[in-house]
């Protein structure tokens, strides 16, 4: 086969990778290309080079999820919250919902690693999870007697949990539909966006909407999103122990020894 045909095949696989709702189990050509990637090292190199040209990285070519891309900071292809949430005031809530959905779907760190784990989230429980975390912070703030005000004229200095708490989780409307500015409605919009892009699967309407995770979501959260955000938090000087115990906890509790056993 000529070089040009190889290149065309690599680009074809790249194009399949962009169709995030598609898995190679549903498309024979996609499946052939994924199979070829796994055995043909030259082809794999070609694919990586082609992806690099798009400012993308190939996170994985996975037997379950197919081709999974990651974005580099330079790329034009990264999706942002602004694309699917039009209201500026709603965006922090929506971005937080992205994290909360992942956090609930992979509540235990080992769930992220377990290939067989299918996370199951509902809109209501995602909201409750953040809400309870916020309540705990509220309680702690009340105990330390911390002032709860925000400097005038600088509304973005409000702590995120307070911003979350101010927004009502639900609000009544004339009909039984959700109020578009309520937290549940925003979380639902995020979940629907993820479902449209092949990251979640719709699994019913209970509790405001139930979703299960896909392999692709697991890989992207594990390999890219989680690590990246952890790094950024560390850069801000906020480090939290691997056992999940926040550093501000009482010093009496020692973390169990040898948690850093894994890779």
């Amino acid at each position: 086969m000529s070089d040009f045909e190889d290149l065309a095949a690599a680009c074809r696989l790249l194009a399949f990778g962009f169709q995030s709702g598609l898995t190679h189990r549903r498309n024979a050509e996609y499946a052939t290309l994924v199979g070829r990637y796994r055995v043909d090292a030259a082809f794999a190199r070609l694919l990586h080079a082609a992806a690099r040209g798009f400012d993308l990285t190939v996170i994985a070519v996975d037997p379950r999820a197919g081709l999974v891309f990651g974005t580099t900071p330079e790329t034009q292809f990264a999706a942002s919250v602004a694309d699917h949430i039009k209201q500026v005031a709603d965006r922090p809530i929506a971005a937080l919902a992205h994290l909360a959905i992942a956090a609930l779907a992979y509540y235990r760190p080992e769930d992220l690693d377990d290939e067989a784990h299918v996370g199951r989230v509902t809109i209501r429980h995602v909201d409750e999870m953040v809400d309870q975390a916020a309540k705990e912070l509220e309680h702690r703030a009340a105990e330390t007697g911390e002032d709860d005000g925000v400097p005038a004229g600088q509304p973005d200095l409000v702590q995120l949990w307070r911003y979350h708490q101010r927004r009502n989780p639900v609000a009544p409307t004339g009909d039984a539909r959700a109020h578009p500015k309520s937290r549940h409605a925003i979380t639902k919009r995020v979940a629907e966006y993820l479902a449209d892009n092949g990251m979640l699967r719709r699994a019913g309407n209970e509790n405001g909407g139930t979703y299960t995770t896909t392999a692709r979501y697991q890989i992207q959260v594990r390999e890219l999103a989680g690590q990246q955000m952890l790094g950024e938090l560390a850069a801000l000087g906020i480090a939290v122990g691997l056992d999940g115990k926040p550093t501000y906890n009482s010093p009496g509790d020692e973390p169990p020894a040898s948690t850093e056993s894994g890779s």
Binding site: A100, A103, L104, Y107, R108, P109, D113, M129, L230, T259
Partner: peptide
């Protein structure tokens, strides 16, 4: 305990 050092999303990030 976690077998590998992946991120604990709820406690380390949220």
């Amino acid at each position: 305990p976690p077998s590998r050092s992946y991120v604990d999303l709820a406690h380390q990030l949220l």
